[in-house]
């Protein structure tokens, strides 16, 4: 049972990877031109860049948030070796 919090973090990472990869390939990539192309689609290109970083940022925030919660809940009770 002591691994249960880490199982939950793994399961969350798994679901986010699936959902975000699907969103990325089906909605972000087909949005328009390659981001560095300066055309009349600049707005779409910018949106694409924002969405790419947004997806990565969201994953980071969720993972860091869950890990910090876990570490904070454990650090106080983690035993130290008797000297």
């Amino acid at each position: 049972m002591k691994l249960a919090p880490l199982f939950i973090i793994e399961a969350t990472a798994f679901l986010l990877i699936i959902a975000e990869t699907y969103f990325f390939f089906n909605f972000v990539v087909p949005l328009g031109p390659i981001p560095h192309t300066l055309t009349e689609y600049t707005g779409l290109a910018l949106l694409k860049v924002v969405l790419i970083f947004g997806l990565a940022f969201f994953w980071f925030v969720v993972m860091i948030g869950m890990t910090r919660l876990y570490v904070r809940s454990r650090v106080g009770i983690s035993p130290k070796p008797s000297s």
Binding site: L6, T67, V71, V75
Partner: peptide
């Protein structure tokens, strides 16, 4: 338990004991 210790998966497991 040092604050600046890197958070590897191993450290997270060992935080439970």
């Amino acid at each position: 338990t040092e604050k600046e210790a890197p958070n590897t998966l191993i450290r997270l497991i060992l935080l439970a004991g």
